[in-house]
Amino acid sequence: MIAPAHPLLSVERLSVAFGGLQAVSNVSLEVPSGAIISLIGPNGAGKTTLFNCVTGFVAASSGRVCWEGTPVGGLRPERAASLGMARTFQNLRLFGSMTCAQNVRIGTHRLENEGLLGAVLGGLAWRGRRERMERIVLEAMAFVGLEGEADRPATSLPYGLQRRLEIARALASAPRLLLLDEPAAGMNPSEKRDLAGLVRRIRDRGVTVLLIEHDMPVVMDLSERIYVLDHGELICEGAPAAVRSDPRVVEAYLGKA
């Protein structure tokens, strides 16, 4: 197999500043297609800010983000979604007034192009497309293990399942890159194992995964490559085994001896 010429996503010397605070400084990373890449680091290291920048929620102060080798400037969230990025949020952001299935249905928004005229005129094509979309919704829910919960109010799910629902919503948009922000937070060990299995199955479906996670066993188990951030700077990158034994990483997490 010939390796693609460009990584799916690459971040080049990216910096994000909020006023005087340098949240991310001069970070470069590459996410090759079909990989599971992790971003770790202590609290406040700038991981989520980097995520927000890649998905267009905050603007970079310098550096750039490239999608398949092409720089995407002035990125906005809806543009990131149309490129094929989907994300979950550290603090769940489900649509509170909707059922589980309705939440996932919003994920299919970008797959449709129905405008005002289509909505008003309707017709047979419309019915066929609706059925196709609803099949995608059910399939995504079954994939994360939420079959049978379609009509349940989303916020009535237990916390762990709400995280899975958010993943299902992201998957329903048929993304090429899935960005997961601390998906294992607040889960017990067996839920974490299930989640790791789910992430692996997502990758096996051909969706590239970029993961922020605190839980070391999960990260070490899943990742092909790990990037370590501390105080907004990249302090280490490499394969799990190398990162684990790197003295700078140990120092960042445990403090200097």
Binding site: F57, A81, R87, R93, F95, G96, I106, H109, S173
Partner: peptide
């Protein structure tokens, strides 16, 4: 419901 989540869904 959630403007940010809506935007991230495109």
């Amino acid at each position: 419901d959630d403007e940010l989540a809506a935007r991230s869904m495109g």
